[in-house]
Design a protein around this nucleic acid. Structure first.
Lengths: 234, 234
DNA sequence: GTTTTATGGTGATTTAGATCATCATTCTCT
DNA sequence: AGAGAATGATGATCTAAATCACCATAAAAC
């Protein structure tokens, strides 16, 4: 599996490395070299991509699907640190600043991902400054996202965080005011640091207040303005 | 001020860029070039290094002192995202993934810092992959730290977070079981997402339980084991 | 096709910690 | 040195949201 996943649907150059996004910074030679250390994997919903405390040998680049990166604590409580969709890495930080994965990751939807050997990636980063710069930008974005979440967790109360969540789905994941989430209520709650009960109650309040329309996993935003205000005032 | 801060106490090469830490990855030529875009600044306690929403022209490298990076929300509540001591950058993420500073930073102790022009730094990162790799490692560490904090904020209750704080001071900042903090109770509270009243109460409980000894800003850990357990069970 | 297991939903109860109020003590600044 | 401000400390009260206890569907598994 190390080699020869040729001409898959993500490229046309006989390499598993896609011809897009961040990999555009690589030369043909570097792409070829990188693909030696790459494995294409598919995961079904609920499949584990990697588990907290396992040795972190690979970085995971999502080609298709949706993945949650989470951390389990005492008991069965879980916090979801981020979602990673196509074009995102699921283990950037663990890969370069730890020998072990510091979080777990699981597929929320059926997912196709590239497992990239850390060492191979590292070699290329060392010699290709533009590529490194692109990774630095990605990591910076990740720091800002997680910090924003930290601020929200400690300053906003539930309605504000639920509004954040709805905005996030609408603006960053689905680019639409109506969408169907593939997450359970439990998973949504984990994303904003609450319980499923509290999430359900708050979403129903939004529904009663005609801020959103809610039918199972289908969410339609009726008042983007109010969602924005709620998310901003916390 | 752009040039000519020669032979200061942090180097002996006629450049404001220090001969240590991450800057060891730079060639003499790169150091010289970087120093063209560098300003050495001193700050007194409470001085602002940069403010949320200002254009982010510089990265800030701490040479001496201690800085808090924080985010202000509604009202007068504040969350402290990280502390930055000597050898740390205070605005890595904002510098590369945003045009504006996404957080504020203020000196907790009298501080000496290098203000490094973003553009100059960027040029060097692009052409020096080893240096980029070192920055990637720093950023990875930062992501892991902030994620850990996020997990603590949403899963641990106060005693666990206070234990985290004491461990952090002891293990990461002072490397000793007895230390004198330069932060106020308010600032300590902001670091773990609580109020000064709750922090004070919890610390006093620790004192009554003979886990720590407490005299104003002086803290002595009497039972590192208990602190560790409290921090782990949350 | 019927049992079993996840998920969605609701009400009642509890609780950790915020908030409010107040006072003591220690800095800071002329 | 003394006024004023910032900090530290404690008690009383309040409240957002967790927890607990169910039940109803829906989805998997046998």
């Amino acid at each position: 599996m190390k080699k020869g996943i040729l001409n898959n649907e993500y490229n046309n150059s006989g390499s598993p490395v896609p011809d897009e996004g961040i990999f555009n910074y690589l030369s043909a030679e570097e792409k070829a070299r990188l693909s030696e250390g790459v494995t294409l994997m598919t995961f079904k919903r609920q499949d584990i991509l990697f588990k907290q405390n396992m040795p972190s040998d690979h970085l995971v680049y999502i080609l298709k699907g949706l993945v949650k990166v989470y951390s389990g604590g005492r008991g069965d409580r879980v916090v979801c640190i981020m979602l990673a969709g196509p074009g995102a890495f699921a283990a950037l930080a663990s890969a370069y600043s730890s020998n072990i994965y510091r979080n777990s990751a699981a597929a929320i939807e059926d997912t196709v991902a590239l497992m990239i050997r850390k060492e191979t990636m590292r070699d290329i980063l060392k010699q290709n400054g533009l590529f490194s710069m692109a990774i630095i930008n990605l990591m910076g974005k990740e720091i800002l996202d997680v910090s924003d979440k930290l601020v929200a967790f400690s300053m906003k109360q539930l309605p504000g965080r639920v509004a954040d969540l709805i905005r996030y789905f609408s603006e960053e994941i689905f680019n639409s005011s109506e969408f169907t989430v593939s997450l359970t209520r439990q998973e949504m709650a984990e994303l904003i640091g609450t319980t499923k009960e509290s999430l359900i109650r708050t979403m129903n309040e939004f529904k009663n207040d005609k801020i959103i329309d809610l039918d199972g996993k289908n969410i339609r935003i009726l008042s983007p303005e109010l969602i924005k205000v709620l998310s901003e005032i916390g």
